[in-house]
């Protein structure tokens, strides 16, 4: 049995300061959530990088596929009207 059978992959998110959101910092192997949290503390917050840690089973993440990149993201490229700067503000509109 390989080590990865017992110790699945976890993705680690760290919040650097109060008020900021958690940011993905990397991944690690651990047999369960509590140990994943311990390992994340030892691996990713050694130099005061954070005040809060999330660990998420990597298997629980559904990711977009690079193969679908064109279908997913390219259609947004020519839709300039989705940006607020596309619209001219009519004269006389206050508080906008």
């Amino acid at each position: 049995m390989s080590a990865t059978d017992n110790t699945p992959l976890w993705e680690v998110f760290v919040r650097a300061r109060r008020g900021l959101s958690h940011t993905h910092v990397g991944s690690l192997h651990a047999p369960d959530a509590e140990l994943a949290l311990h390992n994340a503390r030892d691996l990713y917050t050694r130099r005061q990088e954070g005040v809060s840690i999330w660990v998420v089973p990597a298997a629980a993440i559904t990711a977009s596929s690079p193969d679908e990149k064109d279908a997913f993201f390219d259609p947004a490229a020519d839709k300039v009207y989705r940006h607020p700067t596309f619209y001219e503000v009519p004269d006389g509109v206050a508080h906008l």
Binding site: T7, A30, L35, H38, N39, D42, L43, R46
Partner: peptide, 11 residues
């Protein structure tokens, strides 16, 4: 026993 635990013990 694994790399993560190695770091924990060293810490």
């Amino acid at each position: 026993p694994e790399m993560e635990e190695d770091v924990a013990l060293a810490n």
